[in-house]
């Protein structure tokens, strides 16, 4: 039953990717896609394929990052936004746009550095707390770091209002101007981290049961939570570097995977890894077709899909509570 569910999810992802490759403002004759020098080949290889790969990689990274953070924090509402990874990344991007706009190709590395800096700050603050549980301290530290970076973003945008145009597209998230070269390093990070996530699925199950049970099974839960959060930040930072601050996918996808699989085990991690890319591809497809030939940020549709589903999950949980 579980394997059937995963096979169906994989099939839906493949179909969605194919639709995204075919759909767009330029109608492609797919018989000519692999003809060197043809318009179809150029559009496919330099626009459609990088965009679909970017959307799929971002979906994979944010979804697994969200899952890791929800397990690590013991909080179902945790996501890269909550622990300040996204705002740290956003601040680094804004800083970069203010002071080094001529080195635009280095922007992804600034986003990644900001994400990691925020993560390190969150873990340092949360490790100072000995009275709170590790999950509570991580969330509280995340909220504090989030507030700090949002305040810095506001300050910088007030002092340098001219850069807000570039920043606003980044802050919503999307794939309109993906450069294939900007995908290579993040893709390597995301794919290796994803394999690692699937490999450590049994550890995630133990950590979900709380610090006391995890300790009794021989784990050092605080240390494991920190490592999971670092891995989550690494993945989210890698994705933010080319996709911007795409929200909701990291929050919604773990719940969707949990809902579809019953929760726990490797099947939930794999379902998360399949559902995240599907959701982001769907958002991006809507973003570039609904107002074609114009385009909206994919983040707008991610929110449109994510919010109703999240409300449904919360009301469902409230009925159980």
């Amino acid at each position: 039953m579980a394997k059937t569910g995963l096979a169906v999810a994989a099939l839906i992802l493949i179909i969605m990717a194919l639709i995204c490759l075919m759909a767009g403002s330029t109608r492609l004759d797919f018989t000519r896609v692999f003809t060197p020098g043809s318009v179809e080949s150029i559009v496919f290889m330099s626009v459609r394929l990088p965009r679909v790969l970017a959307a799929a990689l971002a979906g994979l990274a944010f979804a697994l990052s969200g899952l890791l953070l929800q397990v690590a924090s013991g909080n179902d509402l945790a996501s890269p936004n909550i622990i300040g990874v996204n705002s740290g990344s956003g601040f680094a991007v804004l800083l970069f746009l203010c002071f080094l706009p001529q080195h635009f190709l280095l922007l992804p590395f600034a986003a990644f550095a900001g994400a990691m800096a925020a993560a390190v700050l969150v873990f340092t603050i949360s490790s100072l707390s000995t009275r709170l549980s590790s999950s509570s301290s991580l969330i509280l530290a995340g909220v504090a770091v989030n507030a700090l970076f949002n305040a810095l973003i506001s300050t910088l945008s007030s002092l340098k209002p001219e850069v807000m145009g570039s920043y606003s597209a980044f802050s919503v998230g999307g794939f309109a101007s993906i450069q294939p070269s900007s995908l290579v390093a993040p893709a390597v990070i995301i794919l290796i981290s994803s394999v690692l996530c699937i490999a450590i699925a049994p550890v995630l199950d133990v950590i979900r049961l709380g610090d006391e049970i995890a300790s009794s099974l021989g784990y050092r839960p605080r240390r494991v939570r920190m490592l999971l959060s670092m891995l989550a930040s690494l993945m989210a930072g890698a994705a933010v570097s080319f996709a911007g601050l795409l929200g909701f996918v990291g929050l919604v996808t773990p719940h969707l995977a949990n809902f579809l699989t019953g929760g726990g085990g490797r099947r939930t991690v794999v379902m998360c890894a399949l559902s995240g890319p599907t959701l982001v591809l769907l958002s991006d497809l809507l973003a570039r077709t609904v107002v074609a030939p114009g385009e909206l940020p994919a983040g707008v549709f991610m929110a449109a899909i994510g919010v109703p589903f999240l409300v449904y999950l919360l009301t469902r949980r409230a009925r159980h509570a």
Binding site: G210, S216, G263, G264, R317
Partner: peptide, 21 residues
């Protein structure tokens, strides 16, 4: 050692999943 803690986790998973391993 094995433990039945006082504070039990509130995890949204199917009970049988706890016994997978």
């Amino acid at each position: 050692h094995a433990l039945l803690p006082q504070d039990l986790p509130q995890v949204d998973i199917v009970v049988s999943s706890l016994f997978d391993d």
